[in-house]
Nucleic acid binder design. Structure first.
Length: 759
RNA sequence: GGGCGGCUAGCUCAGUUGGUAGAGCGACCGCCUUACACGCGGUAGGUCAUAGGUUCGAGUCCUAUGCCGCCCACCA
């Protein structure tokens, strides 16, 4: 036996080991020994165990959150693989529409001073594709560095051909079922990003602002309060509470007046949305630029003139305000109010202002023609495997989302997140899915341009093509030569991510993979995308397949720095997992991320913590060196079965090992990761090394005890390697290769000790 | 405004059905002992946020309070 180096060198080992694994084919279910054995009829067909990797955004590089995700999932997968499951862990990347386009646009602007319109749609998309293919390669490399045992042969991308077909197919189905519609509604417009965004992409920032109380005109009977005087040029009503005695006499009356050069027709309406306690108790209603005002306007049949443009500039009035930015127009209007003695009060208030998560732009609510997913419309579900929902019965997308969790068919870990989930589902409004950006899945809707001219058909009847056609491919008009033009908008990136559990398996085709691996077993992801993604997957899978996308949801927390701050580029406090793997080894990084990290709770990480687990890997390495040095193979045959105990120390260590195996197994079965990781650490260092190995030094001197002690040492080491392998795969595999006798070619597919421990 | 989580050793955190408080890092003292100085042996350090309650027994269950954090909604 060749002498092992004194210290373990992860850098030298890890790349070599990963290559070995990848070439073994064990990362694909087809390559697993259990599958081969079943094929030859030696064992029954193994059960599948499937995880779809949450696809990292194709915007750049992996961060610590990804490293945590990869570690947790790899532990789950490696454990099941060793237990003899037919494991599939499918990797991929997300095109992350808005985020990616923003990154590339920014870069181009910085280098060339050009914006997207200078380049044109085609050229911009070419540039983004180039960037993304580079970025994807980087990500794939980094996933390997972390030791992720995923099936690269099935790697997917949310914008590749197969996934695009899935998107177009489900869009058409949902459209035909009345679940997708085009409507003119108030949307969240981001003037900076020049696109709509969904409710979930808004972040609120607290700011100090002024609340102005004023009258539209001298002879107007009611004063109103607002923080946005510039929008008042779009007012069509004043709403008061129906029970508010102060204003009863005015309800129903209309006033024509001039407001800073803009003629307004204001009707006084009674609406419960007006809070008598706030301000003057009267609300100036601006239907086109406020979500709640739009609702009031709908109830009272009021017009909704748009007075603010997509560039956040005023569209009406004279030179004082027309064409000006909203902030400038606000000053003008306040001056005008002061000049005319209409301003009654000015007070400081704190206000939560809506901003776009990606660009930071202040959201301008605007009425726009957009595509929506209707979450409340009933439709007939075709084939349902959902609990409490029979095939052919009526349901809504909202009910599907709610019931999947309420029925217990999907379990969320930790379970208190179910409450948050229900609250979100219950308050869910229709989902705006169209975006005015170019990168992404272009909406599969075609418009007849110009509109089809009716003409006389063969039987003398008047024929005309539809103006709008929803289809997976470009249609042709039967009656004229005019072209159909595809809707220029693209879909919200989460629309395609919502299909992830089944689009990755080949849907809409009826593939063998889909049959074998869906629903998946567990979805492991960060709690911050419970709504964005988890809920949407439940919805999409429920609709498309009549089934849940996964049985369990494991939510991990945010990885923070030593001071508990979020890691961010602007703070510069991020720790790069790849640097860490380079410096301390991927095994150390994995252990540090996982020990003491309970689901749903944020965790902190810093270099010293990782270093501790590098030391642990080294400890294990030296334990192995000691054992291998003291157990020359020529002396006896290594036995896999449990050895006898002669001394009290023998008895004690074997009992503790057995308890450890049981505990680690129980915990992993229940998706508890942090506890077993720590238990193994404690056992290896403070039971096995500190106590038994020290005792063994004496026992090895005793002729009566020598051979049995050797057996126990090897037995313990072998068991430890297998228990620890899911957590620290590299160092364990490397040591396993040195064992004189082993039960499998590689530790990746060695049987889990549970099956041999006689428990 | 509504909801959720946290408050345990100097720091970061475990503590799985209630049964005499744990780990890592750090600190201090002593050791280059032939597996490991990425190490070994030892020491110090906690009224488990506060106040009640249930129980033979509570960090663990219940109630209230305080502080910190997060999520959602949003009053114009």
């Amino acid at each position: 036996m060749e002498e092992l180096p004194k210290a373990y060198n992860p850098r030298e080992t890890e790349q070599r080991i990963y290559k070995l694994w990848e070439e073994s084919g064990f990362f694909s279910p087809e390559g697993l020994p259990c599958v081969a054995l079943a094929k030859r009829g030696k064992i029954p067909e193994p059960k599948p165990f499937t995880i779809m990797m949450p696809p990292p955004n194709a915007t750049g590089i992996l961060h610590m959150g990804h490293a945590l995700m990869l570690t947790l999932e790899d532990i789950m997968i490696r454990y099941r693989r060793m237990r003899g499951f037919k494991t599939l862990w499918l990797p991929g990347t997300d095109h992350a529409a808005i985020a990616t386009q923003a990154v590339v646009e920014k870069e181009i602007y910085k280098k060339e001073g050009k914006n997207r319109h200078d380049l044109g749609r085609e050229e911009l998309l070419r540039r983004i594709d180039e960037f993304v293919s580079q970025s994807r390669k980087t990500i794939q490399k980094q996933i390997r560095v972390m030791g992720a045992s995923c099936d690269w042969s099935r790697e997917a991308f949310t914008l590749d051909e197969k996934r695009s077909l899935a998107v177009r197919t489900i869009f058409k189905q949902m459209y035909d079922d009345g679940l997708i519609y085009r409507g003119n509604r108030i949307v969240n417009w981001d003037p900076k990003g020049q696109t709509t965004i969904s409710d979930d992409e808004i972040v609120y920032e607290e700011r100090k602002t002024k609340l102005y109380t004023f009258r539209y005109a001298k002879d107007f009977p009611i004063a109103i309060s607002t923080t946005r005087p510039e929008t008042k040029v779009g007012d069509t009503a004043v709403a008061v509470h129906p029970d508010d005695k102060r204003y009863q006499q005015y309800i129903g009356k209309e006033y024509n007046l001039d407001f800073c050069g803009v003629p307004l027709n204001i009707k006084i309406v009674a609406d419960p949305a007006a809070d008598p306690e706030f301000g003057t108790g009267a609300v100036g209603v601006t239907p086109a630029h406020s979500m709640t005002d739009w609702e009031i306007a709908k109830r009272h049949n009021l017009s909704a003139p748009q007075v603010i443009s997509e560039y956040a500039r005023i569209l009406v009035g004279d030179e004082r305000i027309r064409g000006k930015k909203t902030s400038e127009a606000r000053e003008e209007i306040i001056n005008w109010l002061k000049e005319n003695n209409l301003l009654e009060k000015e007070e400081e208030v704190t206000q939560n202002i809506a901003t776009a998560e990606r660009t930071g732009g202040i959201i301008e609510p605007l009425p726009k023609l957009q595509w929506f997913v209707n979450v409340n419309t009933k439709f007939k579900i075709k084939n349902s495997k959902l609990k409490g929902l029979q095939s052919g019965s009526e349901t809504t997308l909202k009910d599907i989302m709610r019931n999947a969790v309420a029925s217990g068919q999907i379990k969320i870990i930790p379970d208190h997140f179910a409450k948050t989930y229900f609250h979100w589902v219950d308050n869910l409004r229709d989902w705006c899915i169209s975006r005015q950006i170019w990168y992404g899945h272009q909406i599969p809707v075609w418009y007849h341009e110009p509109k089809c001219i009716p003409r006389t058909g063969h039987e003398g009847d008047i024929v005309k093509c539809k103006d709008t056609i929803v289809a997976a491919a470009a249609p042709k008009c039967e009656f004229c030569d005019a072209k159909f033009i595809q809707d220029p908008d693209t879909l919200d990136t989460w629309f395609s991510s919502g299909l992830w559990t089944f689009s990755t398996l080949g849907w809409p085709e009826k593939t063998k993979d889909l049959e074998a691996y869906h629903p998946t077993d567990i979805l492991e992801t960060g709690y911050e995308i419970l709504f964005f993604w988890v809920a949407r997957m439940i919805m999409m899978s429920g609709y498309a397949l009549g089934d849940i996308p996964f049985r369990d949801v494991y939510l991990h927390g945010t990885v923070r720095d030593a001071k508990g701050r979020k890691m961010s580029k602007s703070l510069g406090n991020g720790i790069d997992p790849i640097d860490v793997a380079e410096k301390f080894g991927a095994d150390a990084a994995r252990m540090a991320l996982v020990v003491g990290n309970t689901p749903g709770t944020d965790t902190r990480i810093w270099e010293d913590k990782i270093k501790a687990y590098k030391h642990f890997a080294n400890k294990l390495w030296n334990i192995s060196r000691y054992i291998l040095m003291n157990t020359p193979i020529s002396n006896f045959k290594f036995q896999i079965s449990k050895p006898q105990s002669i001394t009290d120390a023998d008895k004690d260590i074997l009992a503790k090992l057995e308890a450890l195996v049981k505990s680690v197994t129980d915990n992993l079965d229940r998706h508890i990761i942090h506890e077993p990781a720590n238990q193994i650490y404690q056992f290896v260092w403070h039971e096995f090394a500190d106590i038994y190995i020290e005792k063994s030094k004496v026992q090895l001197q005793d002729v009566q005890q020598k051979e049995n002690t050797q057996k126990i040492l090897l037995y313990c080491l072998n068991t430890i390697l297998r228990l620890l392998h899911p957590f620290a795969p590299f160092v364990t595999e490397e040591i396993y290769r040195q064992l004189p006798q082993k039960e499998a070619e590689l530790l990746v597919v060695a049987p889990w000790p549970f099956q041999h421990s006689g428990l």
